[in-house]
Amino acid sequence: MNKREAIFSAFPLCLCVSVVRFVPFALALLAVSPAPTFAGDGTRTDKPVIEIAKPGKCIAPAEEMRRNHMDMLKHQRDRTLRLGIRGEPVTLNGCIECHASQKTGSVLGEGNFCQSCHAYAAVKLDCFECHQPKAGFKATGVKP
């Protein structure tokens, strides 16, 4: 079901009288929604585009990653930097290796993994002021 249908089914009574009145409203909604399009899985809300560049398995189930990745990362950075523990499953460079887009090599930029979801959720990271968002190769100065 797309957004327009959702609105229509939410206001079934209006359907007969004022289809025309609602069309601009629905169009306006379409216009303000972020570039990611509606996920057609029957929910009423939009979803961000999640492109998995390297299919396989994440370090934890997707549900857990969605909810807890920020805590994992903030916990891990102290373990790595302050205690010197390396080689654990959570590493920011690890996320980037797997999740960088095949096209741009970066996790940032429109439609790319970390950024598209954060733009959707209105989260702004400062991590990439220091951390290199690109996997494998030297940056050319691309910033979000």
Partner: peptide
């Protein structure tokens, strides 16, 4: 601001 960091 910097943008040419070594990832490590």
């Amino acid at each position: 601001p910097l943008n040419d960091q070594n990832p490590e």
